[in-house]
Every structure is written in structure tokens, then in C-alpha cells.
Design a protein around this nucleic acid. Sequence first.
RNA 1: GCCGGCAUGGCGCAACUGGUAGCGCAUCCGACUUGUAAUCGGAAGGUUAGGGGUUCAAGUCCCCUUGCCGGCUCCA
Length: 660
Amino acid sequence: MRVRVNGESAELEENATGFDVFPEREIIAMFVNGEQADLAKSLTDGDELAPIAVDSVEGLQILRHSVAHITAQAVQDLFEAKLGIGPPIEDGFYYDFLIDNPLTEDDLTKIQKRMKEIVKANQRFVRVSVTEDEARQQMAQEPLKLELLNKRNESLDEGNIEVDAGELTIYENVDPRSGEVKWKDLCRGPHVPNTRIADKGFALTRVSAAYWLGDQNNQSLQRVYGTAWPNAEDLDAYKQRLEEAARRDHRKLGQELDLFSFPSEIGSGLAVFHPKGGIIRQVMEDYSRRKHLEAGYEFVYSPHISKQQLFEISGHLQWYGDGMFPPMQIDAEYDEHGELKKQGQNYYLKPMNCPFHILIYKSRSRSYRELPLRMFEFGSVYRYEKSGVVHGLTRVRGMTQDDAHLFVTQDNLESEIENVLRFVLDLLRDYGLDDFYLELSTRDDGDKFVGDIKDWEVATDTLKRVAEGTGLELVPDPGGAAFYGPKISVQARDAIGRTWQMSTIQLDFNLPERFELEYVGSDGEKHRPIMLHRALFGSIERFFGVLTEHYAGHFPPWLAPVQVVCVPITEGQTQYLEQFAATLRSRGIRVEIDDTDERMQKKIRNHTLAKIPYIVIAGETDADANAVSFRFRDGTQRNGIELETAVDEIVSAVESRKQV
RNA sequence: GCCGGCAUGGCGCAACUGGUAGCGCAUCCGACUUGUAAUCGGAAGGUUAGGGGUUCAAGUCCCCUUGCCGGCUCCA
């Protein structure tokens, strides 16, 4: 028969399989007419074939999915466990099990040992087509698999890797010598040819609980997470990436660099910023303030609490009440019989700033000439995040948003969105993030939205047009919009390639309606403004955490809490350096002198660990030459820098916000 | 909120199956004054997160609370 391989024609024996076409070890599966298939699949005349290498995107998924099967086999060998699902995920895979006793770290070690035996045994993955009845029969001991089969008949779950609308298949793991079926799983595949391919590139990483089918009303399963790579080197590189991420963890750096803490006396998710973190934060805020002023924002202030009524009008209580701290009840008075004498009031901590800014808008009548009206506030908000989700500075219960609300007319909507997006991206770049993509969250297909469907379409088109205008990659997020309007979010990649959702620009059709906002147009008639919410940092706390991780604590000089530490080599140079420091200080530099009686080597070590951008060292030679020496965080140094040059260089690095 | 784990001087850690808390760094005092990542000596510092229980005896075992960690669910 004749097939085409990568577009080239090839002649094959009858009964040929993928193995005949792709004998190389690193080819683990193939595309047959665009569909992924096992290499063991029999080919037919006219097939279009392409290889799937183990290190390709598809190959890695197949590998990881296959290792998930090996994991499940090992677990069932060792424990009384029922199978859930086991898909590949980024960098690895998981497999869920219904099991009586939660798995421990020790169990993980045992499972991994058993997996190694399975890999060594080189079991073959064998695809078997079955009818639904056969599948039920073979999976009779697996209640969750049976449930999947039932669900298949109701409605097919898209994310469901086990079964789909096509033919039902079971994958058997077969011992190559005895031909005995060691284990099997309902699965649509494809898989690697044999377990040996997993070789030394896999590891189990953690175990946790997960809800069956991701629904918290369902039973809780034990989820085993693992990672799998084509070889031991890749696995090692992955582990090193994790270590690198751990080194950058802002919670750890926050402690080490004395930036912030979460005193348990205050409560979960409530941070205090220490002096060093305080400087960074202040510089961040000051720069943002300056930029906002230049961009035509007006600064407003609003209180942290409000009467219940405000959040009734805004709808926050109705929709997000669970996410708000419970009310403070004040002013109620009771007589001696416990009867209410005076009606009290409920006050709430604000979860958002928008209602307050809206009230400022509403404080008088507005003309179209005033629009776009841009109100900015570093607004502190409080949200009762569930106890299990609080995480460092990135998910807190009290935070300060760099929040702005823009009130615009239909006419200036597009140009304003364009302005905001450019402003946001420029500002993020100034803080050192420069690798972005955008996400456009559009309306849910259902009826969970407010406003006119026409307005949604116009607004969505506008957002899309503006987003495309940036030239950045635009990822659609259908159904991701809130019920009150579509949004663009800016995703930033950090220094080690992780993405963080940063800014959002959110249209709101709801609040102008609820608060009955108006402006008088050039026609003398009243019109309803469109409202834009936008936060650039998201919250200052979160952005602080992201920047800490992005820089791994090596903040560029303009943000560094201490920019320069002077280290005299002997007492003789203390005065010399004090003068130098005084000059720097007069130029606005945050400089310290280490005149303790530690040895200079120790001082260099300490200040390097404290990630000080410039360690300025001077000994007798330098002093005689009217010079100093620079030592940087990476250990590099420059000696004999003339005093004036040294000052200018430091000042200019700070002013230009460059990294050193 | 759910599942599991953890909580020992400021920080990082130790204390076998229950036997009465120890080390390094930091701190303080003293000596040393040194050219690029840890000088030496001494002192002080903990009712083992909080509360309750079991026991002759609890850092260790049990229960509750708080906080943290890893996931799940959630994130206006």
C-alpha cells in the first residue's frame, strides 16, 4: 500500500503499522490523517502520516498521560483504590483515586517504587475497542468509570479524557513475556508503546484532595500529582526550575529582606509592611501617582466603611455578600426589656471603591464637556476570602487597589480605552515588566448578563479593536466576562516565564444604571455615561509580590530600599566614605554606612545577601586617589571610580530606573 | 469552605518508641582594624502557637481554636 509520510509518498507492506514507518525510539505516537494514534495502529492505503516525538507538545502530553496510567496501576497494586480520571497537565499529570485512607508522603515513595518496577517490566500499552456493554462489564469494579459512561450518554463532557463521542476503548497494560493483562483503564488514548519509554524521567510530586469532576458537592478524591519528561536531564531541569521559583517566592524573600509580614495577631491575609518594604511600596505608589497626574486623572479619597444601603444599591451585597466581611451593627439602643428603642445601622467594610467614586460623580450634575472623567484612588478594600485561598501577598483579605473609574460617553469610549491600555502597558514597562499578552473576556452565552445585548457587542468590538491595535497577542476568553461587562486583562510574563494576570480594563453597564448616572449632552438631553473600571497593579500588595518574584528580590536601584551601602576597609576610611554618602544623600540617594567593627569580608557578604544594588568600598588606595570601588550583587566589581563619576552613575541609574 | 500536613528563642533547624528543651546565625558585651561572600571569646534569650484533656511524667498522645503550607473549589 501507499501512504504519505510528512507529505512524502512511501510504499508499505500490507498490515504495516506505525512502527514500520517510525522505528525511532523517540517517536512515541503518530498523526494519522490529522488524528493522534498509537504507533501500533494498522495503516490503510492513502493514510497521511506524521510522527509525534516524545519531546513535542503532543508527545509530552501522551507521555504524561501514559505515566498517569502507570501511577494508577501502581496505586491499585498497593492500595484498595477506585479510579477517577488521570489527565496530563502542564509539566505533568495527575490521577484521582477514591480511597479510604488519605495517601501520605511515604505512600508516594512506595507508589513511585512500584512505578519503577512497572517501567522496568516494559509493559505494552494495548488499545482494545469495546462496545458500551463490554466497557461496563470490564469496568464493573470501577464505580466512577461507570459514572463517566453514564454521563457519556447524558451529555459529553469536553474536558473528559476518558471517553468521548467516538468509539469506546480500553487500554490494557500487558506483560511482554507472559502476555498477561496487568491492568486496564477506560481511556481514549493514544499512549506510548510501552512503559519503558517513561524510563527515568518521571517523579511523583505531591498528593492532595480534589473533588470528583471538580464539583465541591461531589465526593472528595485523593489526587496524586506527578511530572514526566523524555529523560532524566529534562526532569532534573524541571526540578531546578521549581527550585528557582522557590528561591523567588515573595513570602520567603519578604521574610529574609525584612519587607513585610503577616502577624497572626492581626488575622489571616492581613499584611504589615516593614520599613524596607514600606520604601519600595512608597516609591511604587509615588511613581504611579505622578504618572496618573500626567495622564489627566483626578485624585479622590473615600472611607473604608459604608452603610449597608450603599452596597444594596450597588448590588454588591446581593451578589458578593459572601465575599464581604460581616457587618458592624452600630447605634441600636434597647430598653431594659431588650426591646428596640432606636433603630441601628449596619456598616460594612468596602469590598470595592466604585460605589464611592460614583457618589462623587453624582454629587452634582455633569456635562459632556467634563467627560472623560477619570477618578483615581489608592483605595483600601477588604474581602472575606475563604480561609483556604489566602496566599502571601497575592491573595489577601485587606488590600489597596490602584483603582480608577472612568466615566465616558459612547463617543469617547474607543479613544479612552486606547489611552488606558497604552497607559497601563507603559507603566508596567516602567516597573520592569515587558513581556505581555492580552486576554479578551466576552459575554457568557447564557442570560447571565445585564444591559443591552447591542451595547455588549459594540463594546466587545471596541475592546477587541483596541487590543489588536497594540500588536500584542490576544487570547480570547469566551464566557469569561463578568455579568456587568466585557473586559481586557493584561497578562505579564515574569523573568522566569511565569504569567501573572496584572491589569484589567473592565466595562460596566450595570452600575451607571443602578445609580442612575447621567450627564447632559451637547444636545441638552440627559444621557447615561459608560463606566470603565481599571486597576493596573490589581492591588499594590499583589503587584509588590509579583515584582519581588520577578526580580528575585534584586530590586533595581530606584526601588531598592537601600540603594548604596558604604564599606570602609579600615576605620581610616570611615570619614572619607561619610562625606561621599553625604553627597549621595543630598542627591536623594538612600545610602548607609556600615561602620560596625565587623571585618569587611563579612560586611560584603551581609550586604550582598541583603541584595543591596551598590556596595561602595573604599580603602587607603581609593581614598588617596579620590575614588571608590563598586561591588555589585552578582559579585562583579569595578575599582578606582572617581568620586564625582561614582555619584553621577548612581544617581543616573536611579533616575533612569535601570537595573544593575 | 473542603482534604491532608505543619507550628520548638528574632531567623533556620535538632530533641529515638512520652522521661522534663539543644545547635547555628542574628542580638548584647569584650578583644581584633583587616582590600572584595562568615575573626575570636563571653553573655543573654524559649511557661515548645493558644486552650482543654490523658498520664507518675507531654515539645512528643487525644480534642478544640488560631495561623501557616500543598492542593481542590472560589477570586466582584
